[in-house]
Nucleic acid binder design. Structure first.
Lengths: 154, 154
DNA sequence: CCCTTTTGACTATCTTTGACCTTCGATTGC
DNA sequence: GCAATCGAAGGTCAAAGATAGTCAAAAGGG
């Protein structure tokens, strides 16, 4: 018998496969009691096995009627974007580097013209008015977060 | 099963859509008993989901024959964006306020789904990881800069 | 030993509830 | 008439409740 993290991961995977649209919603506490473990165990499983690099997206809401939604991304975006996003997120970015990525994505038709313009505005040094090192970090965070959002949008 | 706040919000949204002029009048107590909740629950829903940033206006009158009127503000697509950008740029923005504006513009079809998602990612407090006051200022700068870029894109 | 898993105390966020307050129209007492 | 009073709305706010997130220490397993 495997460890509990594996069991929980398998159950989630099964549920995802049985779901017609590749989206499931669970309640953390409920799943935890089903497996007789602490709720943060579920968080751990999601954090280690349902990551963006593996093609999953996780959203949640707290409070009464709260939930955790797990989305299995379709194959196509799973190849191109995540790798680039990972590269972008890894290190701080200069404006020139950021613009390079954006232009490349635009040329590859992964961004519309409007989307590219928005991203260019967001990475502009006049908009990101911060000390240089912090600015380059924020630029990287922003660009990767926005591109990640795009993956989720489909 | 959803929470009650969502249910009430949905009902109000439905009523607004069915109303020809985008105006509805309700009685707080009546709506509360329809949903078997306390009246202040209705106040909560209005305060959190029918805000000015989201394009709604709420007026009310107390006393006998009192009411709550909810108005869905009309948006002239031609000059809406400049006005909203102006409002956004004027002051620092909380995440909730920023999300309100984005959702409004999306509802009114001035943003595509993808664009809205990108903007939502950009104003997220986890992405804009800075001291709160600076964060709210950056949020305002970012959002207005990106929306301005969109205007220019056409 | 080092890496992964398991736990739980503490934190953050959102919702629900209720006691108390304010406003307004209607009624009453003079 | 007119002010005092009353009842019927809606408003405020803070506490309690319901979830989920974080983080680091403890426990397992190679």
């Amino acid at each position: 018998m495997k460890n509990m993290a594996e069991l929980i991961a398998q159950q989630l995977e099964t549920m995802l496969e049985q779901s017609p649209d590749g989206v499931i919603e669970i309640q953390r506490g409920a799943l935890a009691s089903q497996f007789a473990c602490v709720p943060s165990q579920v968080t751990y499983v999601l954090a280690t096995r349902f990551t963006q690099e593996r093609g999953y997206l996780v959203e949640s809401k707290r409070g009464g009627g709260g939930y955790i939604r797990v989305v299995k991304l379709p194959l196509d975006p799973r190849n191109a974007l995540p790798k680039i996003i990972h590269a972008i997120a890894a290190d701080p970015l200069t404006q020139a580097q950021a613009e390079g990525y954006i232009q490349w994505l635009y040329r590859e038709h992964l961004l519309t013209r409007r989307e590219a313009m928005m991203l260019l505005a967001a990475v502009d040094r006049n908009v990101l008015e911060l000390p240089v090192d912090l600015r380059d970090t924020m630029r990287s965070r922003l660009l990767s977060a926005m591109l990640m959002a795009l993956m989720r949008a489909n």
